[in-house]
């Protein structure tokens, strides 16, 4: 099982991530009264980027982006996609750290480009990360404390037995907090401060072209996938769907349908993000930080206190 997951789950994540990128462009277009690009447009973009002759600002410029993409793929291995989960070592803590490495790689690469637009973008990226990390850590700690485990797989498995976390009264507040910070994790408006094209010329990727851009796009796709998948895994019970898969338990079909259910749930969550994305302008970075440190943090803090007190 693990061996299969090792090969299959990055593939699923990549395809689904690109699909989500395409879908988000299509849906945004429809909200804006447009027809929108074909849903496979991001794939064409990636192929185009690969076919272009990029520039490099030195070895480190290349190293950062490779590090970023490969660690994003490593991250996928730690994520239960449906019933697939290749690696479990380190649990959610290692997951959190690995989640950091993708942006960190891009930050290294962007800074090696010696472009202040990139540097400002990275500074915003880290500040935004710090801002949403506060409620996110509280949320994850609440979940880990509640289920008394640091393993993601176990969290999903417990939910399979005892119902979705989002449905249980103790974890509803963290769930809401996660939904509130989801646009920030995905880098969507109103938190699209990092690659603010009209302000700092698309920020960290200002100097990326050709294969560097292609790598970045893939990394971004994976990032979107991870951001949503984490929510689905932690709060919406991963592959579970009210015992629908119980009759199939143990067969290959359970795995396949599990993945399908998982992806459907992710699409649903993505839609919520897209509708928020469509009707809000960009925050200024300090406004974003103030917002994230106000409501989501408060809600998740209350959630954590409730969980600690009822423990």
């Amino acid at each position: 099982m693990n061996i299969i997951a090792l090969f299959v789950s990055p593939l699923i994540a990549l395809i689904a991530g690109m699909f989500f990128l395409g879908l988000s462009r299509k849906i945004s277009a429809r909200i804006q009264w447009r027809y929108g690009p074909p849903i496979y447009q991001p794939v064409i973009d990636v192929i185009r980027s690969f076919s272009q002759k990029s520039i490099t600002h030195g070895k480190f410029f290349d190293f950062g982006i490779i590090l970023s993409l490969s660690s994003s793929f490593v991250l996928i291995l730690f994520l239960p996609i449906g019933k697939l989960c290749a690696l479990t070592s380190g649990g959610l803590i290692a997951f959190l750290y690995l989640m950091l490495m993708g942006p960190f790689g891009i930050a290294l690469s962007g800074a090696a480009a010696a472009n202040p637009n990139s540097s400002i973008g990275i500074s915003r990226k880290f500040l935004l990360a710090l801002a949403y990390e506060v409620p996110l850590l509280l949320v994850l700690l609440t979940v880990m404390t509640h289920y008394h485990t640091i393993s993601l797989v176990e969290i999903v498995n417990i939910q399979a037995n005892s119902g979705w976390a989002f449905g249980s009264w103790a974890l509803i507040l963290p769930g809401i907090a996660y939904l509130l910070i989801l646009p920030a994790i995905l880098g969507m408006r109103p938190f699209e401060v990092v690659g603010a094209a009209q302000e700092i010329s698309s920020g960290p990727i200002a100097e990326f072209g050709g294969k560097h851009l292609a790598f970045y796009t893939l990394q971004h796709a994976l990032h979107v996938f991870v951001g949503i998948a984490l929510f689905v895994d932690i709060f919406l019970g991963g592959w579970t769907f009210f015992g629908l898969l119980n009759p199939l338990a143990g067969t290959v079909w359970a795995v396949i349908f599990g993945i399908i259910i998982f992806l459907l749930k992710m699409t649903l969550v993505l839609f919520i993000g897209l509708f928020v994305n469509a009707v809000y302008p960009r925050f200024r970075i300090e406004q974003a930080m103030q917002y994230l440190w106000k409501w989501p943090t408060l809600i998740s803090f209350v959630g954590l206190i409730i969980v600690v007190l009822t423990k």
Binding site: S28, I31, Q32, W33, R34, R189, E192, A196, A197, Q198, A278, V279, Y280, P281, R282
Partner: peptide, 9 residues
């Protein structure tokens, strides 16, 4: 402000 929807309208 990245407000594409309104911009399109």
């Amino acid at each position: 402000l990245g407000f594409d929807t309104v911009a399109n309208w």
